[in-house]
């Protein structure tokens, strides 16, 4: 009986979006009378922080402080079509639609400011702090609040914009499978270290070292939140989870979190994460989708680390202590025979 350590690696890529279904998202942006910007979407924030990412993308594009962007999401009366929050598509598809809408709104805003300042709109820039100024002559400026008031009450102009981002559907060719499943891919590599008890079959994950290439981390804290949560989920898939532990018998099928096993706080290893950014040409500021892939590389990395530790391959998920013990016993039997 011994505790045996092992190390394993896995490397993966992941497609952004659902090209094989046709994949539009539509966004609207408008200014309130005092120069706040409302983004209207039917897109859903599942808890990953979609609204925050949209606010930052909109603020960047219009050139206003992020506090002035309000995101109205998940309402079919006020928000235009979004296919949905799935397929790692949210940041990429919604972000692109918002950029297009925000650019149109920004253009109107600059034209309104130009008329108020009696200059050419092409000579104007935003300072990112709520003002529009003449390039090279920042004293000639108008606040965005005043520009929005002028647009509404003096010039009668709508500071608003429409955006839609569509990746047209790719139909696979029947004979060859030629298709375009995505326009960009994110990447990852994970190294896992484990300790396996060869008497009980229990696995402790000691560390997960992750490198993810995400195109652009629009909000690094939200990227970290996804990647650390994903690492936990990947570890859980590798070692713990099944809804049908004795299939085809449905007995002992878990019905609550006491029976559906997942790693608790004490089981979570040291997780180190490094992020690389190779911007996608069609991504919003280069961003790719990482919502799903962040649970993927850990599963094979842990499986490979278990083999490295105790020399048995478990090719069926989840890799439970029972499966490891049975494989170890089978190996001993073969060695004896």
């Amino acid at each position: 009986m011994a505790l045996k350590r092992g190390r394993g690696v896995a490397a993966i890529n992941y497609p952004t979006g659902m090209n094989l279904g046709g994949d539009p998202t539509h966004a609207l942006v408008h200014s309130t009378p005092t120069g706040n910007f409302m983004v209207s979407l039917s897109s859903v924030d599942l808890g990953q922080g979609m609204r925050q990412v949209v606010a930052q993308i909109c603020a960047e594009t219009i050139g206003v402080p992020v506090e002035r962007v309000i995101v109205d999401a998940a309402d079919t009366d006020t928000g235009p079509l979004c296919m949905g929050t799935f397929a790692s598509r949210g940041t990429h598809r919604i972000g692109n639609a918002v950029i297009q809408a925000a650019r149109e709104a920004r253009q109107v805003m600059l034209e309104v400011a130009a008329e108020a300042l009696e200059v050419d709109a092409g000579d104007l820039e935003t300072d990112g702090e709520g003002n529009i100024q003449v390039k090279g002559a920042p004293a000639r400026a108008i606040s965005i609040t005043d520009a929005a008031l002028a647009a509404h009450f003096r010039q009668g102009r709508a500071i608003s914009g429409r955006g839609i981002f569509l990746v047209p559907r790719s139909y696979p060719e029947a004979a060859t499978g030629a298709m375009k499943p995505a326009t960009c891919y994110a990447h990852a590599c994970t190294v896992a270290e484990v300790e396996v008890d060869d008497e009980t079959g229990e696995v402790a994950v000691l560390s997960l070292k992750n490198v993810f290439e995400v195109g652009r981390a629009v909000n690094p804290k939200l990227v970290e939140q996804q990647l650390v949560g994903g690492a936990w989920m990947g570890m859980s898939h590798a070692l713990y989870e099944t809804t049908e532990p004795y299939y085809p018998s449905r007995e002992h099928g878990p019905t609550d979190f006491n029976m559906y096993l997942m790693p608790g706080p004490g089981d979570v290893p040291r997780i180190e994460t490094v992020v690389l950014e190779r911007p996608a040409p069609d991504g919003p500021y280069g961003a790719k989708g990482t919502g799903e892939m962040c649970a993927n590389p850990h599963i094979p990395a842990i499986a490979n680390a278990i083999f490295d530790a105790v020399g048995v391959r478990i090719d069926t998920l989840p890799i439970t202590p029972e499966r490891i013990l049975r494989a170890l016993q089978e190996r001993s039997r073969r060695a004896a025979a």
């Binding site: 922080g49 609204r51 925050q52 930052q56 993308i57 603020a59 960047e60 050139g63 992020v66 990112g128 290439e213 652009r216 981390a217 629009v218 909000n219 690094p220 804290k221 939200l222 990227v223 970290e224 990647l227 650390v228 994460t273 490094v274 992020v275 690389l276 950014e277 190779r278 911007p279 500021y285 280069g286």
Partner: peptide
């Protein structure tokens, strides 16, 4: 988490204002 900016630096504009900021949700 660490951003390793040395990779692909020539393919990126790293002078954005809001994009790239680790803002609280």
């Amino acid at each position: 988490m660490e951003l390793r900016k040395s990779y692909f630096a020539d393919e990126r504009d790293d002078h954005l204002v809001e994009v790239g900021k680790p803002r609280a949700r």
